[in-house]
Amino acid sequence: MKSRVTSAIDFNALGMQSDYARVPYSSDVSAYGWIPVPMVCFNGGNGPTAVLTAGTHGDEYEGQVALRKLVQVLSRTQVEGRVIILPALNQPAVAAGRRNSPLDGGNLNRAFPGTADGGPTAMIAHYVATELFPMADLVIDLHSGGSSLDYFTVTLAHPGRDDGEAQAVRRLLDVFAAPYSIITDGSGGGAKSTLYAAAEQCGVPAISTELGSGATLSRHGLAIAQDGLARVLRQYGIAPDLEVPQPERTQFVKFIREGAIYAPCPGLFEPFVATGEQVEAGQVAGLVHRLEDVGSDPVELRFKANGTVAYRRFPTLTATGDALFGLMVVQ
């Protein structure tokens, strides 16, 4: 079914255009209204097309700011190819400062490929998958730890469905050049329901990122996003005049499932290590102070494997089943 989302942008017209992806939404206060998802298109004619998104989760800010800054940069730069930018993809979640949409509870990065006649989250996913991906030669979806995680700076990608796609993904990771890169099947997260997994199914090389911690702005993560975006647009011939810093070589790592630690009970989480630290099997990772039993000893958490801390829970208050730590190792 064709997407019900519309836009006044003519993606084939030359120059810069700014409008919205207009998502139909009937509410108590607006029977025939639509949700305005901001979108900017730069088209310089012949050349590859990059689709760049952020705000897929509304409480992750490095990507949102990086794409807004990129709009200003590209408005003063010669663009040879085409760049489609959506810095607040899940606009209801962005406006609310929440991971998921307050309208339907939808987690956009668990909603792909979406449906044309679903709720707002499903319609946004369907529009991206059916209208934008067919135009794209590469996709970058910028994420951070958001309200619940302190995340090390990494890029992530699905492996591609054949050798040619694998090489295209590897090139995109190498050019973006975050400190660490992970090729994953997504089994520890959204599996095939994420934006970059859906791009893979369309044959488009795509990467995602994790750039910061908490519902705030990391200047380090922001710089990685800005530099990586500029390198990609220059190296792919889309904005060849951009000045970019010389990157360090990205290091390829992988998540280890036995490295994950989850909260065994409700309580107050006291971590003993930070993201980026090297840890060993048997090392004490932290404590959970039981919320309802002040007189009992706290629950001691220990790592079950050697590795580097990839992420750590950000809030202190925790519930049974919350992810507290994840580990990665060099491939």
Rank of each mutant, 00 (worst) to 15 (best):
A66S: 05
T130G: 03
A177V: 09
N109M: 11
S3D: 11
S101N: 06
Q91W: 00
D137V: 07
I238T: 05
Y180C: 02
R312C: 15
A96V: 05
L67N: 01
P240I: 10
S181Y: 03
T115Q: 12
L211T: 05
F252N: 11
D10K: 09
V51I: 15
V294N: 00
V288P: 08
R110M: 14
V309T: 11
S144I: 03
L103C: 08
F272S: 12
P92S: 10
R257H: 11
T77V: 01
V329L: 07
G118W: 12
G228R: 09
E258A: 14
S213G: 15
F133G: 10
L173T: 13
A21Q: 07
F272V: 02
S26D: 12
P245D: 09
V73K: 06
G81L: 07
P205E: 04
G33W: 14
G164F: 09
Q246P: 00
T56N: 14
V299P: 00
V175P: 00
R82G: 00
A285K: 07
L52I: 01
R313L: 10
T184K: 07
L195V: 09
G190P: 05
I261R: 03
V79F: 03
M123Y: 11
A198E: 02
V51L: 13
A125K: 05
L132V: 10
A260H: 07
N12K: 12
L242P: 00
R82F: 07
V29G: 01
D185T: 15
A125Q: 04
L242Q: 03
D163T: 13
L301P: 12
P315Y: 07
T316D: 01
A215E: 04
L173N: 08
A178G: 06
A285I: 12
P159R: 06
V253R: 14
R82A: 02
G321M: 11
V94H: 04
C202W: 00
R171W: 14
A54L: 00
P36Q: 12
T318Y: 04
F303T: 07
G45A: 12
A129P: 00
F11G: 02
A281K: 13
L324G: 11
P48E: 14
D293R: 06
E60C: 05
A263T: 09
F255Y: 15
T194K: 11
A319T: 15
D227C: 03
V154E: 13
A323K: 15
S27E: 08
G119S: 13
P247W: 14
M123C: 10
A206D: 02
L327T: 11
E258H: 08
Q235N: 11
C41V: 14
F325N: 08
G81P: 02
A225R: 04
R312A: 11
R313F: 07
G160I: 10
V128Q: 05
L138Q: 10
Q246D: 10
N90Q: 06
P102V: 08
G33M: 14
A111C: 11
Q246V: 15
R161H: 10
A198C: 10
R219P: 00
A198R: 01
D141E: 05
R82H: 02
E248N: 14
G105C: 12
A206H: 03
S208D: 02
A129R: 09
S187K: 12
P38T: 06
T77I: 04
M328L: 12
P87S: 06
G276F: 05
G237E: 08
T318R: 05
G189V: 08
S101E: 06
A198D: 09
G221C: 01
D28L: 14
